[in-house]
Structure formats: C-alpha cells, structure tokens
Write a protein that binds this DNA or RNA. Sequence first.
DNA 1: CCAATACCTGAGTAATCTGCTCGGGATTAT
DNA 2: ATAATCCCGAGCAGATTACTCAGGTATTGG
Lengths: 139, 139
Amino acid sequence: MRLSTKGQYAVRAMLVLAMRQAEAPIALRRISEIEDISAQYLEQIFVDLRKAKLVEGVRGANGGYKLARPAEEITAGDILRAVEGPIAPVECVRHQDPEACQRENICIVRGLWKRLRDSMSAVLDTTSLADLANTTEEV
Amino acid sequence: MRLSTKGQYAVRAMLVLAMRQAEAPIALRRISEIEDISAQYLEQIFVDLRKAKLVEGVRGANGGYKLARPAEEITAGDILRAVEGPIAPVECVRHQDPEACQRENICIVRGLWKRLRDSMSAVLDTTSLADLANTTEEV
DNA sequence: CCAATACCTGAGTAATCTGCTCGGGATTAT
DNA sequence: ATAATCCCGAGCAGATTACTCAGGTATTGG
C-alpha cells in the first residue's frame, strides 16, 4: 500500500516548476540536480506528464519544461494519475464493472475499497501545486 | 498505489470467520474453498494474522481458526497492518523521523503524504469486521 | 551555419516484490 | 494408531520497479 518513487518524484518535480512558474522554462537537467533524481529517469516521468498535458516542453537552447496550466489548476491527483494510472486500491473499483463478482465476500468488501479510494481521491484532488507551494511549515 | 491480493485475501478470510463467529473453529481448508484462495498461500497469511493476535489457531482434528477478539473490535486497518505492514504511502511518514529530509521539496510534499495516510487510516480504522458483516447491499 | 542544448524514444537490466508451491513436522479428536 | 489439522521454512517463476544505455530529433545562441 505504498506510492512508487516515480509518483513521488513526479510531484516533487512539478513543484519545482510551480515554484518558478512565471519564469523561463526549466531544463530537465536542472530539476534533476535540484531534486537529486536521475536525469534519465526523470525524462521518462516527463513523457507521462507531457502526454497528460500537465507540462509543455520547450525545445532548443535555453529550453526546458513549464507547467501547461496555472499551478492552481493542477492537483496532486492529476500528477499521480498521469504517472501511476488510476488511484484505486483494488482493480474492481477502477471503473464500474457490475459483473466480475461471484464470490460471496468480494462484493461486501468492495464497499470498503470504494470508501478507501474516495477518501484518497478527496485528499489528492483537493491539493493543488499552488497549495503545496504556499505551504510554509505545517506540522 | 494498490493493495496487494494478500491484503484483500486477509480481509475476506477474516470476514468468513466473522460471519460464523460463535461456532466452532473453521478449518483453513474450508476458508480456502469458500473464498477460492490457495490453501497454502492462506496459511502464510494466517501466520501473520496469528502473530498479530487477530486469530487463534486450534490444533488437531476438527481444529481451525477463530477470531481472537469479537468482530466489533477488529478493524480492516488491523488486518491490513498485520499482513502488509504500516499503512503509509511513503516511507518517511511511517514514524516520526525528523531528520532524513535534506532536499527542499521533500518536506513540503510530506505534509500531503501525511494527510493522505491519515485519510486512509480514518476509513480503515473505523470499519470493523462487524460493520462489514452487517453490510446488506450498499451501492 | 552549426554545434550546443535539450527534448524525445525505445530497449535493456539488476534488484526487489508478489503470489504462490513444496515438503515436512507438531498436535489432537476419534 | 491415524487422520485431520495447524505450524514452519525454503524455494521459485513472473511481474514490477527503478533505473541505465544508446541513440534519435528539434531548436536556437553565437
């Protein structure tokens, strides 16, 4: 029940962009140095982020990446879904699939997984990059 | 960000015990048939459940397993922690470790992981086996 | 122009985790 | 005794994770 480092890296990298939003694009290499993440691994992560239209790449010298939308409009949930797929603790609550439920206790437990999924989504989808960037020192 | 089948199996197996609580111990083999889970894999799971004092094994012929406590006093969180370890999306929020936090954005994001962990715990620790067993058909 | 910068892509890979299987030993009701 | 049952440790194939490697392709400062 843990988050992959890929997801953690993605959020941290996006936060770097969010905290320097108005400025010129930031080179991937630079993010890699700031957050101490392998540059080549970060590239893969940014492929996902770009496909999800969360960032835009700027090519050429002095290029880099920037947020595709204002930091207020990108949530942690957006980022995690982009790099990790659906936020669902078990497969059967990913979409509505009324079938695929023969055994007696599976459906009973499914209600629990749904509540779990919803509580996770509630946190992740209400926390934007702007919220994180404005965090000063909450305990 | 998904739950292992081990955790899912554990909850379903415990629910079998909860729904037949007052009766004689139930053989592992029987649970395996009811829930269609490999008996030998279930054995491993019950090792963890027994160590966590959630079930008691009754040896010998006509033996089996029974809940160590009333179904009202065993939560889904208890079960998942027993077989999967701490409920924490990332390592650094498992316990209080004030150090191990050099990079700039790690601490900022940590607040998010804590809120995520707490919302997950809130659901899992407030749902007992008795609650699940009484579920009739919630959508 | 052109070489540096940087994005983009696909394949490979070591280590770890998951989801089991196999074989045997200990305990107890009948 | 013996069959049923829990108990225990090791092994193992396949998937996943967290990367690396080797090359592209696009853009632009000088």
